[in-house]
Computed example of a mutant assay.
Amino acid sequence: MAVRMIVRTFSELCITAGALIVLFVAYVMFWTGVQAESATAGQIDTLQQEWVEQPVPDATAAPPPPPKAYTPGRGIAVMYVPRLGGKWEWPVLEGTSPAVLKKGLGHYAATARLGETGNFSVAGHRRTYGDPFKDFPRLRPGDAVVLTDGTTWYTYRITTKPYRTVPTDVGVIDPVPRPLRKNAAGFDRPGRYLTLTTCEPEWGSSHRLIAWGRLDATHPVTQGKPPALAG
């Protein structure tokens, strides 16, 4: 009798544990994506509304003041990567905290501003919260990464295949990228660079995948979409 009770109790615990595991997997694979879709759409809507309301620069006026510092947690740009899909569109927010990366991509706060000399560096989830960088390994040299801040289009071009490294390889986001593997980035002097980072392997975080790019072109949003997005 006692053995039967133990077996029954153990079986019930296994069933309960299995149900919890299934619910957790469903949450990770499905519900975080639903949350991310709503959050990212909200971030893009907010940015676009701010851009509509911002004053149009007066070409005859005195030089404008230096741009304000990015506000932690706030949207700063929208990114497009045609290689990752025609509908791939993600907001870039300031900071890389877990809370920020639930809403979109995150700009490393210590790195350069968009389009400026230095290294504009961005992190994103490989999986969960919309899987923004799920297809990161598909990136190839020459691929366009296009961003807009509401006034200007910035077209960067990927210069390397994804580079696999460890989380402590922080030199990948230096102003002139200095990864542990010498010359992996291919840059040896100041420039206007882009670094994209995500987790590796696909469902883990023991390593990182890195892709670097260089600013290729800029033009005002009033001239329409850049050639990289024209198709």
Rank of each mutant, 00 (worst) to 15 (best):
T128W: 05
T40D: 11
L105H: 03
T155P: 02
T46G: 10
D169I: 08
P190W: 05
V145L: 05
R8H: 11
R181I: 07
G142T: 10
V7P: 00
V52T: 14
A41K: 14
Y80Q: 07
V28P: 00
W90H: 12
K103V: 04
G118A: 01
E202V: 11
H219P: 01
L84F: 03
V221K: 08
A184S: 02
D174M: 06
G213N: 00
W153I: 08
P132R: 01
Q43Y: 09
C199I: 05
A77L: 10
R113C: 04
A109H: 13
I210V: 14
D58T: 04
L196I: 05
V78C: 07
T46S: 10
A185G: 04
D135K: 10
P132E: 03
I6L: 13
E116W: 02
G171A: 05
D143M: 07
Y80L: 05
V172A: 07
T151L: 09
M1D: 14
Y129C: 04
G73L: 12
F133A: 05
L114W: 02
V78A: 04
V7Q: 14
S206M: 06
G186H: 10
L139W: 01
Q48G: 08
V78Y: 03
F24T: 10
I158E: 06
V7K: 15
F187Q: 02
G42N: 09
D188A: 09
D135W: 09
M29C: 08
P175N: 06
D45R: 05
A41H: 13
V22K: 05
P141D: 15
L105T: 06
A185M: 01
P190K: 02
R214Y: 02
T111Q: 03
T218Q: 11
P66E: 15
R208C: 01
C14L: 14
R178Y: 07
Y193G: 02
G231E: 10
T165S: 11
T155A: 09
E89K: 15
R4K: 15
L147N: 00
Y156K: 03
T60R: 13
D135Q: 09
E202C: 10
G86M: 06
P64I: 07
L84E: 00
L47Q: 07
P177A: 08
P167W: 05
Y27K: 12
P65R: 06
C199M: 09
V170S: 07
A110H: 13
D143F: 11
V170T: 13
D135T: 07
I44C: 10
T46A: 08
E53Y: 13
S121W: 00
H107A: 02
P91G: 11
G224C: 09
P141R: 15
A112F: 05
K102Q: 12
H125W: 08
G75P: 01
I21Q: 11
S206D: 14
D58L: 11
L93Q: 01
K161V: 12
T165W: 10
R189K: 13
